[in-house]
Design a protein around this nucleic acid. Structure first.
Length: 282
DNA sequence: CAGTGGCCCTGAGCGC
DNA sequence: TGCGCTCAGGGCCACT
């Protein structure tokens, strides 16, 4: 579910309110993708810092205080079906609520039916286990230093399809299945094209498209296909703007109205890819 | 060693 | 209404 915009919208929706709060208790539900790594009780009395984001991970610093815990932070990932809520009124946990950080300002709760998400304790972002989890991540899409030339260099000589290269996130992070499809459509690039075949100008265009699509999704609060909501419980609206994702068999919004060209769905790496074979070229 | 596919887990939706 | 099948926004890891 959550790609970069959903993760960022989530982060923004609770970061200011939780910063400075005291940890009162930690409650664990069923096991997530990786174990927390500590008991949780060690965090009681610690102060919560300012949440940041790297790729689709949220880093929540837990500040070391004299006599009140180790100092470090929680690395959170929402997986496919995770969401975070932050509320002062703490309803009793449901079957899919697997982590509660109970603080003086409210409860930060991870709800994740499929449990592909994770909450992992790490003494620092650049120490294990966080360092290993973040090690393979590509550049941030909104890094002003990032250029099409960087993508061109990262993909040079590789044969994987550009759609899968975007999804893998080892050149640039943040575009999951929805936004990878949308960005490739916007850039007019066939998702099956080997990434090493992308010309330098097309890498520029693709980076522009990734930024445009992610920026727009951020503006409208992300995509709510099933049940994505930010930590206030507000849904996103990008699903109403998708040009190809989820539109198999419907006319292409750009070329299909007059000509009858339909959006196609193919499978790449066990994930669906939606595209227009007329607008998107090899 | 680049590239592929399995797998973690639950729920929704659809055809019969 | 119920059953069984397929698919879902991610990403690690074993294997070829």
């Amino acid at each position: 579910m959550p790609e970069l915009p959903e993760v960022e919208v989530t982060r923004q929706s609770f970061a200011d309110r939780i910063e400075g709060a005291r940890v009162v208790d930690v409650r664990l539900g069923k096991p997530l993708r990786w174990p927390l790594g500590i008991d949780g009780s060690e965090l009681v009395g610690s102060k919560v810092g300012s949440a940041t984001r790297r790729g689709k991970y949220i880093w929540l610093p837990i500040l070391s205080e004299p006599g009140s815990g180790p100092g470090g932070g929680l690395l959170l990932h929402l997986g496919m079906s995770g969401s975070l809520s932050f509320s002062s009124a703490s309803a009793s946990p449901g079957v899919h609520d697997h982590f509660d950080l109970i603080t003086s300002r409210g409860v930060l709760r991870l709800t994740d039916p499929r449990r592909f998400g994770a909450v992992v304790w790490s003494p620092a972002l650049d120490r294990e286990p966080a360092a290993k989890l973040l090690a393979g991540l590509g550049r941030e899409p909104f890094d002003p230093e990032l250029t099409g030339a960087d993508l061109h260099a990262a993909w040079r000589g590789k044969r994987v399809a550009i759609k899968q290269a975007l999804l893998a996130g080892d050149a640039v992070v943040g575009a999951g299945n929805i936004y990878a499809c949308e960005a490739l459509f916007l850039a007019g690039i066939d998702p099956r094209l080997p990434c090493g075949k992308l010309s330098r100008p097309r890498c520029d265009r693709l980076l522009d498209a990734v930024r445009t699509v992610l920026r727009r999704a951020l503006e409208v609060g992300g995509t709510s296909l099933r049940n994505f909501k930010d930590a206030h419980g507000d849904p996103g609206a990008f699903q109403f703007e998708a040009k190809v994702y989820g539109r198999e068999g419907q006319p292409c919004t750009t070329c299909g109205v007059a000509s009858g060209v339909l959006v196609r769905r193919i499978v790449q790496g066990q994930r669906s890819t939606f595209f227009c074979s007329v607008c998107q070229r090899r």
